[in-house]
Amino acid sequence: MAKVIIIGGGPAGCEAAHQLANQGIEVELVEKSNETGGNLNNWYQLFPDRKYAKDLNAILKGHLEHPNIRLHLGMEPKKIEKSKTGKFNVPLTDGSLLEGDSLLVATGFKIFDARRKEEYGYGIYENVITSVELENMFYNHAITTAGGNTPKRVGIIHCVGSRDEKVCNYHCSKLCCITGVKQAIEIRELLPEAEIFCFYMDMRMFGPGYEEMYREAQEKYNIKFIRGRLSEAAENMQKQLQIKVEDTLVGKPLRMTLDMMILLVGMESSEGTRQTAGELGLNLAPNGFIQPQDPHYRNNFTNVEGVFVAGCGSAPMNLTDTLADARSAASCITAYVKNHKI
């Protein structure tokens, strides 16, 4: 029986494992943390349908209970090698050695380190948090400032670490806009009295139901949208944030005091992605993600034969696209192992 090694047990890795197993292919799924799900574990609800992330996670996890799938949790590849015969040898940190006919890179993304955008004050001002930390507040059904107060005015800052030459990230992370809209709605549900603002450069509502959600946020949840990029923030004695943006649609600089500021942190290629790409000699796109062979027809193929990519290792994408990408990769791998008569 053919055997495929999957590096990364996030949504893409899990879904691909499930699909491959159903095709009668043996799967070795390697995940560095002690549970599968990857970044999904940090999310509370998903856009646009507000499904609980843990529910989706449970489905994906359930699919892994398959006789063809062997799970290696808390394990990292010590190195990844392609032998002369085209086989992949992956020694793991526990000393075991995996051997496969094909390799799927599902190493995903990492969240932009907001401290690199120093003028926004993350890690310096106590009431500046990231969108990931906000999800954790949603879990606990409580949004409070660091001082324990209920914020009266909250600002959500789009494009932190995305579309920014100043941190060498030229790409759009795609998901932050809709995440911002979703989170604004969730904040409204917990803080009915608060004023909630989104500061954006462009609203990129690319998915089904996204634009509708944006509309709903304005209409039903009274979220205010200001088109202007945050330039800098300062902190006052009350630990509030004084921000400087330009209200570009009015054409005037705007000063505003916020009780809490949320940074919609963008996506970068993960260390795992870069490391795997380095060891296998995979081409990276200028934005640091893995470069697929062709953006349309061979988007799961890499420049190394037998190595496939799925999910956010190749570009920022939402869950819908990630899961579809995983299935597409699984079908490509199935064809590959059949053609090679493995």
């Binding site: 202007g228 990029r229 943006v245 330009e246 570009t248 054409g251 005037k252």
Partner: peptide
């Protein structure tokens, strides 16, 4: 330029006048 206004928001002169470099 995509007109995000970041330049104008923090502008030292714009802090004191109607100078708006983006505009």
């Amino acid at each position: 330029c995509i007109g995000c206004g970041g330049c104008t928001a923090g502008c030292t002169a714009g802090n004191l006048t109607d100078f708006n470099i983006r505009k």
